[in-house]
Design a protein around this nucleic acid. Structure first.
Length: 480
DNA sequence: TACATCGTAAACACCA
DNA sequence: GTGGTGTTTACGATGT
């Protein structure tokens, strides 16, 4: 069994087929004429988006231009009106937002009308179907810097899952327990210039991020979840989600209103006491981000997830990603083995610039390309795209966990250290695992960052130049 | 039945 | 001293 993040078994609810009639709809408020028009537009944009991805494949993803084109489309999508989801109140108006959620500034053009439809305080104050690992993962991924102190992880969970506000405080212990024992999470050295008080910042170990994503994919009601996205085996009039059970909070009127995909959360995450704009990584639990490049990258994932899980009107169907890896691993309970990923980094063949982590197969039902396509949604690209918008001050920039062993070109990974120290207690093991740091390493890191930056900049320039020329709309361009 | 996974509780140490 | 944080152990429930 590989060192992988296990899916939440308890989250796998039995299939009941209930609440299916809404499973089709995109996770947005529907019903009014404007929305109907927007839906049509959105469908069109979705087609364009798929074309954009196809184009990206054709270009072998050597450029990020496809990414920006796609995100341009998504911005259009976002502004089409469809993205306007319910304000943070439930339709009954009887359940205000959880106290931990700060209200958006009314004069904030971004926050003003884009709040999530997901308000678990509205009659859905039930235990979320996510394991603590997934919750922590989502919390950290939702943070702009992909790292959060425990306190903010609490805050994120509380904000997005009000269930915990009234739950016994033991869940915090569970969170800490997970952080400590789950290999997917690792502490980040605190930046001296940015004191966060007690505790450390926690981040996702890039080596295990894949596993967490897989775990999320296996969580029901996540749009990446095969249970949601599997091609319908039922009559075509039925939505793809028809055969799947409703979320635990299916009674939530907002859930019903939003067509069964209702895990959106208020944008933003509490960080260091301040509410920060959410990077919104998880399709079902976030609103569509708008402008920032990083958020736009996330928007691709988000909208793709929504896009793929849309109804029979959708031109695409979703095929679950190949799960080549064993996902069974959680805490240090288990004996760690080298992850399969490691072999690729150590193997003779250079690792592809594109991971197969987030490859999803999309069948584009068009006359042109009826065959399934595989769309790489590589985290590297996302990382590159978010690079500009998320650059912390230079002094704060640190590696994402993968360093370089001295005298070796192989990346330092936990598992490599683990191979030497797996039998040690966690404390000692972490001491052993701590990668060596040196100025040389910092320089390599900086060089890599500059390369990333250069690539992204070039792509941005391309887009900017095209925009300046006032040429055709992106979707039109993509069709050509 | 054995095992893995997950959640929870508790104890303890450390630190601001 | 207090409270938050991090680590570790233990145990029960559940699923495979």
């Amino acid at each position: 069994m590989g060192p992988t993040m296990p899916p939440s078994k308890k989250a796998q609810s039995p299939s009941s087929g209930a609440s299916a009639s809404q499973g089709m709809s995109p996770p947005y408020r529907q019903g009014d004429a404007a929305t109907a028009a927007s839906e049509a537009e959105a469908a069109d944009l979705s087609l364009s988006l798929s074309a954009s991805f196809s184009k990206a494949e054709d270009e072998e993803l050597t450029s990020l231009s496809w990414l920006h084109e796609s995100t341009d489309l998504l911005n259009s999508f976002s502004h089409s009106g469809l993205r306007s989801v319910s304000p943070l109140q439930d339709p009954d108006g009887q359940h205000p937002r959880s106290p931990s959620s700060s209200s958006p500034s009314p004069d904030d053009p971004l926050l003003g009308d884009t709040h999530s439809a997901y308000d678990l305080s509205a009659g859905a104050n039930r235990k979320p179907p996510y394991s603590f690992s997934c919750l922590i993962f989502m919390a950290i991924e939702d943070a702009p810097n992909k790292r959060l102190p425990v306190k903010d992880i609490y805050g994120w969970i509380l904000e997005h899952f009000p269930y915990f506000a009234s739950a016994p405080t033991g869940w915090k212990n569970s969170v800490r327990h997970n952080l400590s024992l789950n290999k997917c999470f690792k502490k980040v050295d605190k930046d001296r210039s940015q004191s966060i008080g007690k505790g450390s910042l926690w981040s996702i170990d890039p080596e295990y991020r894949h596993n967490l994503i897989q775990a999320l994919k296996k969580t029901p009601y996540h749009p990446y979840s095969p249970s949601l996205a599997a091609p319908p085996t039922s009559p075509p009039t039925l939505p793809p989600t028809f055969h799947h059970s409703p979320p635990l909070w299916s009674e939530n009127p907002l859930y019903r209103k939003n067509g069964g995909l209702l895990l959106q959360v208020p944008r933003g995450v509490i960080q260091n006491g301040a509410r920060v704009r959410s990077q919104a990584v998880f399709p079902v639990i976030r609103p569509l981000p708008v402008s920032p490049v990083g958020s736009r990258t996330s928007a691709i994932r988000s909208s793709l997830g929504e896009y793929l899980s849309r109804g029979p009107d959708s031109p695409t169907r979703y095929s679950p990603p190949p799960c080549g890896e064993d996902l069974q691993e959680d805490h240090t309970y288990s004996t760690a083995k080298s992850p399969s990923r490691l072999s690729s980094s150590q193997g003779a063949t250079p690792s592809s610039p594109l991971d197969d982590d987030d490859i999803i197969a999309v069948e584009i039902e068009s006359d042109v390309k009826p065959e399934p396509r595989e769309i790489p949604l590589d985290s590297h690209l996302a990382t590159a795209a978010t690079y500009i918008s998320q650059q912390p001050p230079r002094g704060q920039r640190r590696g994402s966990g993968a360093g370089t062993l001295p005298g070796s070109s192989l990346p330092w990974t936990k598992s490599r250290a683990r191979g030497l120290s797996d039998t040690l207690p966690l404390k000692k093991r972490r001491a052993v695992e701590k990668p060596p740091e040196s100025d040389d390493e910092e320089m390599k890191e900086a060089a890599g960052s500059l390369l990333h930056l250069a690539g992204v900049r070039a792509c941005l320039n391309n887009i900017t130049n095209r925009a300046a020329k006032g040429q055709k709309e992106p979707k039109e361009a993509l069709r050509n």
